[in-house]
């Protein structure tokens, strides 16, 4: 079987895979990084979003072998170095932006990609950017609020509504 090597959350890893092994499978089954979830098979739900060389990708729509040599970041690599929640993660908890938690890793990874690209997005920009992530629990209200809060914007007015 072919071998693949990459860096995941700063750590060099490698493993044997099949041609058809997806990056999401390699992370979940090969590395036991089960925070990356698989919620659909048409690359739409976004539960599997990770960062590949600094940009968001759907890891269920990338072959592991195509990630050869790549830098991958997953939800397991998002907390601060001391283990405390990052600003985005903390905002998600503070604003109740998750319920069942299944879409959450992908939402956090997409939110982080958005804020890296656009540090102070408008509400409309946040909603548009998250179109590739489906959440069935929250109605998205608190997710949008959390992302705005994580960008340093005042969301008190939204809270009052």
């Amino acid at each position: 079987m072919p071998k693949v090597s990459m860096k995941v959350n700063g750590k060099a890893v490698s493993g044997e895979v099949e041609g058809r092994t997806l990056l999401a499978q390699f992370l979940r089954e090969g590395l036991r990084l089960t925070g990356t979830h698989i919620g659909c098979d048409t690359s739409q739900c976004g539960a599997c979003v990770v960062h590949m060389n600094g940009v968001p990708v759907k890891s269920c729509a990338v072959f592991a072998l195509d990630a050869e040599g790549a830098e991958i970041r997953t939800i397991e690599g998002m907390a601060n170095a001391d283990g405390s929640l990052s600003v985005i993660q903390q905002a998600f908890q503070d604003h109740h932006a998750l319920q069942c938690g299944f879409c959450t890793p992908g939402m956090v990874m997409s939110a982080a990609a958005l804020l890296a690209e656009n540090p102070r997005p408008t509400e409309a920009e946040v909603r548009k950017y998250l179109e590739g992530n489906i959440c069935r629990c929250t109605g998205c209200h608190n997710i949008v609020k959390a992302v705005l809060a994580a960008s340093g914007q005042d969301v008190a007015a939204i809270a009052a509504e």
Binding site: R32, G35, I75, H96, L98, V108
Partner: peptide, 21 residues
């Protein structure tokens, strides 16, 4: 009260059925 379950979900440490091997 903030939800205590959030920390595991936000850090990829939830344990869903498909995570069981």
């Amino acid at each position: 009260s903030k939800r205590r379950e959030d920390v595991r979900f936000l850090t990829g440490r939830g344990r869903y059925t498909d995570d069981i091997n």
